[in-house]
Amino acid sequence: MNIFRLAGDMTHLISVLVLLLKIYATKSCSGISLKTQELYAIVFVTRYLDLFTDFISLYNTVMKLVFIGSSLAIVWCMRYHRVVRRSYDRELDTFRYWILLGVSFILALVLHEKFTLQEVFWAFSIYLEAVAILPQLVLLQRSGNVDNLAGQYVFFLGAYRAFYILNWIYRYLTEQRFTRWISCVSGLVQTALYADFFYYYFISWKNNAKLQLPA
């Protein structure tokens, strides 16, 4: 464990807590893409298949349970909670995410470390996570004004993978045989997708103005 990875995991945890706070405090999920939440639930379920077979550390197991549990709880809330579901921007959240699922799965069948069920699903989850934010970014652009908590949620979600890139650089420099090209390349793509959001987020923060994404 290094400081970059710890910072990344904590930032990821904060993004989940911000989203849970928004949904429970405001009983609203306006500005949040259910499709992105469902993609993230798939990412965690397919990535943590080793949850019950390989024990790495208490921290690792607890965090996996937190991410799987929170993502499923958020999807459940946005679909079935009688108050929250009413504020879901159904007509704006129309990203055809089957394409993301299909492309990621085909890519995982072609590019993986070992051709085993666990490794193929792991690679699938890495590729899927890189593009899972797209429905959310599209929804933010369509909904124009971004409420603070939704903006902070996306900001922390983007920042966590940027910390992981620092972690991979650090591990590459300190551990002679560390190579994780799948994660690294996918993580770079993932963070790049946030680039324009970060830019507009910084502008709005600098001008102390509401976050406005260009349509």
């Binding site: 080793d50 077979t53 390989d54 790495i56 550390s57 560390f178």
Partner: peptide, 10 residues
Amino acid sequence: AKVDSAKDEL
């Protein structure tokens, strides 16, 4: 199963 060090990440 031996978890190679790279798989210890979340």
